[in-house]
Design a protein around this nucleic acid. Structure first.
Lengths: 219, 219, 219, 219
DNA sequence: AATGAATGAGCGTTCATTCAT
DNA sequence: TATGAATGAACGCTCATTCAT
């Protein structure tokens, strides 16, 4: 299902050793990206972090852009994996399932990785098409999970209305990152704020009617 | 009131000519930052955009860091100015006032400047203390406007609860940037999604009780 | 007698104010040269030290080279002035007079100014003709003082032999700078070492015979 | 015995090719330093002289300071090597041995390399700790050679007195550099002046008594 | 699969100098 | 006299990338 189109140089990463190197390189790249931002993501820094020479890094990744692509795909794939796992575990009411899902996201926002990675991704997506496409694909898949549950909770909504609600749910939580993420000013209130945000979203989903989606004239 | 501590080289920008150059430089820097991201924000690029030599740019800004500081302060100050203007114009019910304020923010999210600037700021704030402090000061002042209105709408809330609601309001809207911002995949649905998000937030504010803020044990 | 051919821009330094500025600039330049070496002697550094703008500094000195020339001449002239003063005070035996003169030089070597200035001058003289000429003129004048006394002490020597002895006297003392100068490893033994060096030189002068100057074949 | 702690980038200069490049670079750096002084010692100039790109120069030497350190150590080590060779060859009387040693130094002062290098070193040592330390270490080792011979010539001296005489010997010769060095005003009289200086020093050593080192009150 | 060597462009910054006012 | 503004070259250094081995 995950047709991962890896960007490392064709003919490399064939044997176990090379394959492992690639994994080390990508992990190192993630570390560097989170630590110093995209600005600090240099081939040299990645090579040093991975304990590899610059020449060798360029053997696996012919260009920095290729490395970035694989890096983004790897990190994003990781988030999707986590996501699928969570959903599989739930066997409760749709509300409870959605709440659990959103709670998981709030918790995840508190992790260092997520707090540091996503802002880089958001910024990158404004200047890099590849980053933009992959990011939106990630969010699309995440919203897909929400949409199923939203339909169960409020079956009267049209497909598009459901999608719009899913978008709001996703965006509202993402917006918390900068404020309650790891080491952020309100990280200690993450739980309270997260739960309250989720409550508001669940209420919105439950009570939404066609009227709420009507086009209104701007004054 | 706005004690702007500019960072350009002391002794420069005194006459009209120099002062205007500084303005040109900052505008150019903003353009470059939004166009190519922080990564593309080089002294040479700014100088070229401003139609100035590198030497002259360094005459006004001794270091790139100083330039960035003034740039952030300028852009952030602009947002605060807009903000104060909006609030002054309202003489309606608190709900209507808050709705107007949030609608303004949603509209602003649709502007190219905001869509491109804030993700850079979020990313930067993870690696640069100055950016972090100024960003959070901006948001603090924005929330301050919300808090007054929230108190009027729901006077039963404690100070802290009000603050937490204001944070949720701010974060939920900011989160929309990546999805309904300028040239983003859902920018054409910005109005509908924005209004719906605002509705959910207003409902949350109206109906919030002390219970909603209670600490619940995590499993 | 001192036909100081100042190098500052013609037409400047005419009035008292400008003249004083020039003095301030030269003092500042000397401070910078001694503090940071010739390498640190930049127009900007001198201007800052003198409390003057770069533009104004270039008004007085059209080029860095002109400033350096005046600086060298000023500092060297100062040394010559000191020198003449010393000699005038002596009314003792030639040996005592010479000893007093050399003692003065040893003391002077201990001063921060001399310790820092002369090595710069020696290095400069290898790459800058002007510096070389002025330096050697200074030493020539210094040796001239020695030569008169040496002749009195040992009248049997030819003119050239006297000159050669004067050169040895001068060089031997200058060589101490790097070792017993201000803040140098042996600065605390400056007195003992200086006196012993002087003793050796006086003995050499007293006992020198024509034989000592004979050309001997190498190997 | 020579624990040369080279400062070039770790991981470089391993193969013959790289090692030779380093040698070329250091030679080029020496040439530039002697030709244009420390002031003219730029990375670009060294790279050009060595026939290497700036990038490649920085590959071997991460910083100019590292390059300077290796340069100083190399040149200084060369002088020490010469020194040790000379001493080994002598099997004559102590006076003759010392005279030979000092004659060698006088000859060396006449070489272009020494005439140009040492003044730079003296100036540098006033502003650069590394240069200062290495320079004084060089002189310390040189004096060590003298001290042994002085003790043989005049066994009645204390250790400290011997050391002071050695210092005078060293300083007196070094002081000649500026006057009788290569292309200096009195370079043609180097031999005569050198021999006479050496004679004075040998006499001083022979005749020195404890009295000469007594502390005398300054008037 | 991996190394060290090398390139050339570009980075932020400083410099001596010029100029209009 | 003196200022602030401006230039263009050069500085030390880092970068992504290439290449021979």
């Amino acid at each position: 299902m995950n047709k991962l189109k890896t960007k490392h140089r064709p003919g490399t990463g064939i044997y176990a050793k090379g394959n492992e190197r690639i994994r080390e390189i990508l992990t190192a790249a993630r570390t560097v990206l989170m630590g110093d931002g995209y600005n600090g993501l240099t081939m040299r820094a990645v090579a040093a972090e991975a304990g590899v020479t610059v020449g060798n890094l360029n053997y696996y990744y012919r260009s920095k852009s290729d490395l970035l692509k694989d890096l983004l795909e790897m990190v994003i794939a990781t988030y999707l994996d986590d996501f699928h796992e969570i959903r599989a575990q739930s066997e409760q009411s749709p509300e409870a399932q959605l709440e659990a899902l959103l709670s998981f996201i709030v918790d995840d926002i508190g992790s260092k990785e997520t707090t540091l990675f996503f802002p880089e991704l958001w910024a990158l997506s404004n200047h890099d098409d590849f980053a933009s496409e992959n990011m939106h694909e990630l969010y699309r898949k995440a919203r897909f999970e929400f949409e199923g549950l939203i339909t169960e909770i409020n079956p009267g909504l049209t497909k598009q209305q459901t999608k719009q609600l899913a978008l709001i749910v996703s965006a509202s939580l993402e917006g918390l990152t900068v404020f309650v993420g790891h080491d952020k000013p309100f990280s200690r209130q993450r739980n309270t704020i997260g739960r309250l945000t989720i409550k508001g979203l669940l209420d919105l989903i439950r009570n939404a009617t066609a009227d709420d989606f009507a086009h209104r004239q701007r004054r």
